[in-house]
């Protein structure tokens, strides 16, 4: 009896699996999610450029000296999601900040250079981000995540591919 029931349960599970799995991103969607390259040269200091990777919006921000300083001079203990600025940019490129462009609350697009910290401000539910993309107020639970990316050269990054811990050593 139990064995029969167990076999039946396996059968039901096996039958359900294709139905559930078919809802996941299909092969073409996955393939289209390959890494994209972004040329940094045309991005002037203070400018934010929007790019798409996997249908998701990504901000590439060329930060000014002031903005970098503001991002670094922060008491980490006061942050809702403590993370030093250095962990959010690649070594040797403190001016380039790459973060996902959707608010970590419910996915709206925050407005750049806005809010009390002149980072981003989300108009939907009032989340505030600083110049490092870290949440500083509002309902967003975590910082704007940094997507996997790597510096191909000093003026070009590839989004969707993680570099090694020491950027200098990578792609030597």
């Amino acid at each position: 009896m139990i064995a029969t029931g167990a076999v039946g349960a396996v059968g039901v599970g096996a039958l359900a699996w294709p139905f559930v799995a078919s809802l996941a991103p299909d092969a073409q969607t996955v393939a289209a999610g390959a890494p994209v390259e972004v040329d940094l040269a045309p991005i002037s200091p203070g400018q934010i450029v929007k790019v798409f990777w996997r249908g998701k919006l990504i901000f590439v921000r060329n930060r000014t000296e002031e903005e970098i300083k503001a991002a670094q001079d922060v008491n980490l203990a006061s942050l809702p999601d403590p993370q030093p600025d250095s962990a959010r940019v690649k070594e040797g490129h403190p001016n380039i900040l790459v973060v996902y462009g959707n608010c970590t609350h419910l996915g709206c697009v925050p407005l750049g250079n806005e809010g009390p910290f002149h980072g981003w401000f989300c108009p939907c539910h009032g989340s505030v981000f600083d110049t490092s993309g870290r949440v500083r107020g509002g309902p967003a639970p975590i910082n704007l995540p940094v997507p996997p990316y790597t510096f191909v050269s000093d003026t070009k990054i590839r989004i969707g591919e993680e570099s090694n811990a020491a950027p200098k050593a990578a792609h030597a």
């Binding site: 559930v20 809802l23 996941a24 991103p25 299909d26 969607t29 999610g33 996997r54 249908g55 998701k56 959707n102």
Partner: peptide, 11 residues
Amino acid sequence: LLWGGYSVGNP
């Protein structure tokens, strides 16, 4: 699984 992709889209 809701999206069928990495964001809200055609699927």
